[in-house]
């Protein structure tokens, strides 16, 4: 996931205020949270910033993907070990005889599932970090030694 600083570095850094934000840094933060769109930065669409704009578009595509699911799995870093699946408290509660015991998950609509050798997000609405009574659970990320899992809030 890109950080606000990664995004800021590619903006014009003139603090022109045309986007409605006082500083480019503040615009960077809001781009990341989805409150602002790239199109609102007028100078970025001049030929001078074309390269930077393209890079920003690539970066923000990753952010968009994150918003759809809430968490990101970097499949290139995932070995499919299933540590995240067996340690997830929701899986443990809802699938005590399979996921909790280390077997392939069998509950309907699991949060995560190993598909084609890597972990995939199937149904984030059950995750304890989302929904009405959210808690700051980081279990799946903490048990992934290759840092293949990250959360959108950490951006």
């Amino acid at each position: 996931m890109p950080s606000p600083l990664d995004i800021y570095k590619l903006l014009p850094k003139t603090n022109c205020g045309k986007c409605g934000e006082k500083t480019c840094m503040s615009f960077a933060f809001k781009l990341l949270s989805g409150e602002r769109k790239l199109e609102e930065c007028e100078p970025l669409f001049s030929p001078k910033f074309e390269k930077n704009r393209k890079k920003l578009e690539e970066m923000l595509a990753i952010v968009e993907k994150a918003k759809e699911t809430g968490l990101i799995v970097n499949e290139e870093l995932c070995t499919g070990c299933a540590n995240c699946i067996v340690s997830c408290p929701v899986h443990v509660e809802k699938d005590p005889y399979n996921a909790a015991m280390g077997r392939g998950i069998e509950m309907d609509e699991p949060i995560l599932r190993i598909e084609d050798g890597v972990v995939r997000v199937v149904n984030l609405s059950l995750c304890r970090r989302y929904g009405k009574e959210r808690t700051l659970c980081v279990v799946c990320r903490e048990n992934c030694p290759t840092d293949a899992i990250s959360f959108v809030e950490e951006a």
Binding site: G80, I114, E115, G117
Partner: peptide, 8 residues
């Protein structure tokens, strides 16, 4: 489903 990267 359920196979690690090696299995896949």
């Amino acid at each position: 489903y359920h196979a690690c990267r090696k299995g896949y």
